[in-house]
């Protein structure tokens, strides 16, 4: 079995290990203990596995682990290191944007990455921004509420 050396940082922590050529970043992360990255379809069709890879939100199930070599990965567990990440987590909690919670890690990552680029979106823009992340429980209403509340806060503190 051929394995390749891989060095990356996950949530600011350096990791030096190996990965198989065809291993997805999702499987790699889960195998290395980052089980907060969820597996919902392994085909890029649900968004539960979303992580930030070099400042872009990507679906880790359709990214090779080795494509993260020498790169920076952030999962939901790293969000507390960012003010925006903490704000989003708090807002999701307070607005009841969580039910089963299985889409939540991906949803928060997508929201964080989106608000980093576009801090004051309207509700329709938020809906488009999270349209790659399925949620079966909430009907999205409270998720949009939670993200929008952070956007409003951003506007106020501008």
């Amino acid at each position: 079995m051929e394995e390749y050396k891989i060095d990356l940082t996950v949530n600011g922590e350096k990791i030096s290990t190996t990965a198989k050529a065809e291993e997805s970043l999702l499987k790699f992360l889960r195998r290395n203990g980052f089980t907060e990255v969820k597996c919902g379809c392994e085909k890029g069709e649900c968004g539960t596995c979303t992580v930030i890879l070099n400042e872009k939100a990507v679906k880790s199930c359709i990214t090779l682990a080795l494509q993260a070599n020498h790169k920076e990965v952030w999962t939901v567990k790293g969000m507390e290191k960012f003010e925006l990440g903490r704000k989003l987590q708090k807002s999701f909690v307070n607005y009841g944007a969580i039910q089963c919670g299985f889409c939540t890690p991906g949803m928060i990552i997508t929201a964080k990455n989106y608000l980093d680029q576009n801090p004051i979106p309207n509700r329709e823009e938020i809906k488009k921004a999270i349209s790659g992340n399925l949620c079966r429980c909430t009907g999205y209403k409270k998720i949009v509420d939670a993200i929008y509340a952070v956007a409003v806060e951003n506007q106020r503190s501008k």
Binding site: E36, V76, G96, I98, G101, T104
Partner: peptide, 18 residues
């Protein structure tokens, strides 16, 4: 906020496969 909310937004919660 629900009892389980923080564990879910922080990714701490261990589902069956975790």
């Amino acid at each position: 906020p629900r009892d389980d909310a923080w564990a879910k937004v922080t990714g701490e919660l261990k589902y069956a496969d975790d």
